[in-house]
Structures are given as C-alpha cells and as structure tokens.
C-alpha cells in the first residue's frame, strides 16, 4: 500500500494504549528495570520508557521468546501421545515504542524462519504482531545502522512509524495494511496534515562507517585468514550475551522436560559463541577454538545470510557491543575487516 502521513498529539498517546488494551491486545513496550530496559507487557503509557536510546534486549522475543513450548506429550504403556501447540491461539499483539532496528530485525528473522520447512511458531506469532516503531532522535557511538542499510528513520519492518516533530506532535507513517487496520482504532486522533513534512530533520545523525558491500565481499574472502579471527577474538570469553540481545540471531536448541508420565519439548535460544554449540557426541568439535566461533558469528551475518537469504544478518543496533562483558565491538571489527586490502 502507499504510505499515509498523519499527525498525532503526544498528549493522545495514553488513549492509544487504552484503546489497544480495550481491544484485548497485549501491548509490549520498553520499560525500565534498574539499568536495564526490557520489552514487556504494559497496561498504561506511564510504564513505557519512550526516552531511552533502545532496549537492552531486542524485540525479537515477541515472536521468538527465550523459552517456548513447541510440543506437549504424555507417556504410558500404550506409548507416547502428542499434544501439539495450538498455532491459531497466539494473540494479536502490539509492539509499541520499539526502534527501527528492532522492526527491521524481523525482516532477517522472517527470512530465516520463512525458509522451508516454514517455522510456524515464529511465523504465526509474527503475523499477529503489529509493530509501531519510534524513529531515533539520538544515537550513540555503538550505533551503525546506516552502514548496514538501515537508519534512524528506516521504515523496513514497521507497520506504523512514529517520529517526534515537535514537543507536542508526532508524525505518523501508516506503512502497511496491518498498520492501517490498527490505526483505524485511533483515526479520530489523527489529523490529515502530515504530507510534506521532512522527517529526516528530526532524526539522529548516524555516520556511515564502512561500505557494506565491501565488508560482505571481504568477509567472504577472509574465511581462511586465521590470524584475523584470532586477533579479533582473543578477549572473547565465549558467552551468549551478544547473540541473546541481537535482533537477528535465531539459533535455537531443543530440550525435553519430562517425568514418567508427561513432558514438554522446549525451544531455547542458543548461541554459536558457546563451545558446546557444535560439540559432537563423539567428542569432536569442528569449531574447537573461540576464533572459529567468532568467525562463524561474523560469517553467518555478513557472508552466509547475504548469499543464501539475500539479507544481511545485522541491523547495526550495537546491542551486542553494549552487552559484551569484554568489549567485543562489532562496529570496530567490521570496520577493520572493511579496510583489509
């Protein structure tokens, strides 16, 4: 659909949340928990932290949670009886106040989980979520969205995008059918004079620090450059903080929890940074050292995903670098790969 531009008053934001709630839609939004910003279900606008740079974790958990039941089963003498999860039972959800990098992250996840066989757990949840992103008025030194094809006002993946254009007014971009349907709930609060407004004036200035095509090309060519990966990863301690806060990391593990009578099969986040990730039953580990695991992380995002899924697996949000206990800075690492001659 052709996008529509409208104006909304900041003072009407509480009504939006009320109306979504009155329709029975859970509203997920960034909230403060001490120093951490979580994306969680909220009841009122007052709970929402709209002035934060971005949430600690990405919004991916709305469709790809850290723990997810994918099967129930019972065990008795006659055998195993499966109790599949009802895929139609996921609720219509509103993701409110997330950043453009969260919304565009879903595009990468769509590509991963949309491959055959399609992952209905993700796809059905995603189909029920309407994303209202807030463009970024500020950025920090970890942000590099503009270097990977995004930007502080990037509309990719958003159904609606809100941009503050004065202290009282928000420019509302209605971008998709889903967005149009949700905005019908607050059509009376929208004035029609949004056309002709240049939102770029209200966005953060995020400098382009590397040429993405060059990085993709050089990453692909650097597979055997062992010294490069070792040098970059010596301080990496092999935890999963980067992968778990990442809007596009999609690796998972299955675990069964059961007693003698019944059980559940759970899907859990996993990370290529863990030494256990590729450990074979035989004891052999094809990625036996951290440098190979770090290489996998970079190669997957900047070589394999562009090649196989035609998307780059990075939104430039910088969450991984902010969360890293030992200051592995992906922007810096990519920039250095970009300058390899």
């Amino acid at each position: 659909m052709e996008k529509e531009l409208k104006i909304l008053k900041y003072s009407d934001l509480p009504k939006l949340i009320e109306r979504f709630r009155s329709q029975g839609f859970p509203v997920l939004a960034p909230i403060r928990k001490g120093k951490v910003i979580e994306i969680e279900q909220v009841q009122t606008i007052d709970e929402i932290a709209l002035d934060v740079l971005l949430s600690t974790q990405s919004a991916k958990k709305a469709a790809f949670p850290k723990v997810e039941k994918v099967l129930g089963y019972t065990l008795d003498k006659s055998g195993v009886k499966q109790q599949p999860v009802d895929l139609g039972a996921f609720q219509e959800t509103v993701l409110f106040g997330v950043r453009p990098c969260d919304a565009s992250g879903f595009k990468s996840l769509d590509a991963i989980f949309g491959e055959e066989p399609k992952d209905q757990f993700y796809l059905q949840k995603k189909a029920k979520a309407t994303i209202i992103s807030f463009s970024c008025p500020v950025a920090d030194e970890y942000c590099f969205c503009t270097s990977v094809g995004g930007g502080p006002g990037n509309a990719t993946g958003s159904d609606l995008q809100f941009t503050g254009i004065s202290k009282d007014e928000i420019l509302v971009e209605i971008l998709t059918e889903k967005g149009a349907k949700l905005s019908a709930l607050f059509a009376d609060l929208l004035s029609v004079d949004g056309n002709g407004i240049d939102k770029s004036k209200f966005l953060a200035d995020v400098k382009v620090v590397f040429d993405m095509d060059g990085v993709v090309e050089k990453t692909t060519a650097s597979f055997n450059n062992a010294a490069l990966w070792l040098d970059q990863s010596l301080r990496c301690i092999g935890c999963g903080a980067c992968a778990f806060v990442c809007p596009t990391c999609a690796c998972f593990d299955f675990q069964d929890e059961q007693n003698t009578k019944k059980g559940v099969r759970l899907r859990l986040w996993d990370s290529c940074g863990f030494s256990l990730f590729t450990l074979h039953t035989s004891g052999h580990n094809p990625r036996e050292v951290q440098s190979q695991r770090w290489r996998q992380r970079i190669m997957h995002k900047f070589a394999y995903m562009p090649e196989q899924l035609h998307v780059v697996g990075c939104e430039g949000c910088g969450r991984c670098s902010r969360a890293c206990p030992v200051d592995m800075n992906i922007k810096e690492h990519l920039t250095s790969i970009g300058v390899i001659v």
Binding site: K33, V36, E38, Q57, K66, I237, G238, C239, G240, A241, A243, F244, L268, W269, S271, F274, P325, V326
Partner: peptide, 12 residues
C-alpha cells in the same frame, strides 16, 4: 526473572 542464561557470569 531478568536472567537470559547467556552464561556471561560463568564465562567471566
């Protein structure tokens, strides 16, 4: 409740 089992504590 906040824990995501990234095991950064263990790794560090």
């Amino acid at each position: 409740e906040k824990c995501i089992k990234c095991y950064a504590c263990r790794a560090a």
